[in-house]
Lab assay of single mutants.
Amino acid sequence: MQGVVKVNSALNMRSGPGSNYGVIGTLRNNDKVEIIKEVDGWYEIRFNGKVGYASKSYITIVN
């Protein structure tokens, strides 16, 4: 499943599904990501070869 990031500035990509996990990357508005699965309001995603987590509130699913 594919998604597009929708933010005003930047979205942190984290090592786990929560804001208490470390930041491993930064996503920008309109970045395209691969959604692997949903975990407690977060998406596990793949972006630029990295796998991490981002809040699903800021990612819109596209077909």
Results as ranks from 00 to 15, higher is better:
G18L: 01
N8H: 11
G49L: 09
A54Y: 01
S15T: 11
M1S: 08
N8Y: 14
V51N: 08
V33P: 03
M1V: 14
S9Q: 13
S19V: 15
A10H: 13
M13V: 12
V23P: 07
I35N: 01
S55P: 15
E44D: 03
Y43S: 02
V51G: 08
I35H: 01
G52S: 03
Q2Y: 12
W42L: 02
V33H: 01
M1D: 07
V62C: 05
P17W: 01
V51T: 15
S15F: 08
M13E: 01
V23T: 06
G41R: 06
I59E: 00
K37W: 05
N12Q: 12
D31T: 14
N30D: 09
E38L: 09
K50G: 10
K6N: 13
Y43Q: 02
V33M: 04
G49K: 11
V5E: 01
Y53C: 02
V39G: 04
S9D: 15
N8I: 14
N12V: 11
K32A: 07
N48D: 12
M13A: 05
S55M: 14
A54D: 00
Y53I: 00
V7E: 04
K32I: 09
Y58E: 07
E44V: 05
L11R: 06
P17Q: 01
N63R: 03
T60Y: 10
G52Y: 02
S19R: 11
R28T: 08
V23M: 06
V5A: 04
G52H: 01
G18F: 02
S9K: 07
L11V: 09
G3M: 03
P17G: 02
S9M: 10
A54R: 00
M13G: 01
I59R: 00
S57Q: 14
G49P: 03
G41P: 06
V39H: 07
I45V: 14
Y53D: 00
Y58N: 15
L27W: 01
F47M: 07
S15E: 12
L27E: 00
G41E: 13
Q2P: 09
G16V: 01
G22E: 15
N63I: 13
I24A: 06
G22R: 14
N63C: 06
R28S: 14
V7L: 05
S19T: 10
E44S: 06
V39S: 07
V51L: 13
M1H: 13
Y43T: 02
L27G: 01
E34P: 03
T26V: 15
K6D: 06
V51D: 07
Q2V: 13
K56T: 13
A10F: 11
N8F: 08
T26G: 04
I36T: 11
V23D: 04
G25Y: 14
S19C: 06
N30H: 08
Q2M: 12
E34D: 15
G16L: 02
T60C: 05
T26K: 07
S57M: 08
S15K: 07
G3I: 03
S57R: 15
A54N: 00
N63Q: 13
T26P: 06
V62M: 09
Y53T: 00
I36M: 09
Y21N: 04
K6P: 02
I61N: 08
G25D: 15
I59L: 05
I24V: 13
V4E: 12
L27R: 01
K50I: 13
K32D: 07
V4W: 10
I59T: 02
N63T: 15
N48C: 05
V33S: 00
V33A: 03
K37C: 05
D31W: 05
T26L: 12
I24D: 03
G41L: 09
K37E: 08
A10M: 14
Y43M: 06
A10W: 11
S55F: 13
F47H: 09
S55H: 13
K50D: 14
V7P: 04
T60P: 04
D31G: 03
G52M: 02
G3K: 02
G18A: 06
G18E: 03
P17M: 02
N48A: 13
N30W: 08
I45G: 00
V7S: 07
I59G: 02
K56D: 04
N20A: 12
K37F: 08
K32C: 04
S9I: 08
I24T: 11
T26A: 10
K56C: 04
G18C: 03
K37Q: 09
V23Q: 05
Y21K: 02
K32W: 09
I36K: 06
V4S: 07
P17L: 02
I36V: 11
V51H: 14
T26Q: 08
G18D: 06
V7Y: 07
R14C: 04
E34M: 07
G25I: 06
L27A: 04
Y21W: 10
N20P: 04
L11C: 05
S15H: 06
V4G: 02
S9P: 06
P17T: 02
M1K: 12
I35T: 02
R46D: 09
K32S: 13
R14F: 12
I61G: 05
G3Y: 03
K37S: 11
V23I: 15
D40L: 10
N20T: 12
I35D: 00
I35P: 01
D31M: 06
N30M: 13
E38R: 04
V4Y: 08
R14W: 11
V51K: 12
T60I: 14
N29W: 06
E44T: 04
V39W: 10
A54V: 12
G16C: 03
I36F: 15
Y58G: 15
R14E: 03
G25K: 07
V33N: 00
Q2T: 10
E38G: 05
Y43N: 01
E44M: 11
V23E: 05
G49N: 13
V51M: 11
L11I: 15
I45L: 10
R46S: 09
S19Q: 11
V51I: 14
Y58I: 03
N20E: 14
G25N: 09
R28V: 12
S55I: 14
M1A: 11
V7A: 09
I35L: 06
K37V: 10
L11E: 09
T60E: 09
V4M: 10
I35M: 04
Q2I: 07
E34N: 12
E38K: 05
M1Q: 13
V33C: 04
S19W: 10
G18V: 00
N63A: 13
Y21R: 03
Y21L: 02
R14S: 07
I59V: 15
F47W: 07
G25A: 09
I35C: 04
V7F: 07
I24S: 05
A10Q: 08
N12C: 05
G52C: 03
Y43R: 01
G49E: 11
G18I: 00
N12E: 10
Y43D: 00
V33F: 04
N63K: 04
E44Y: 07
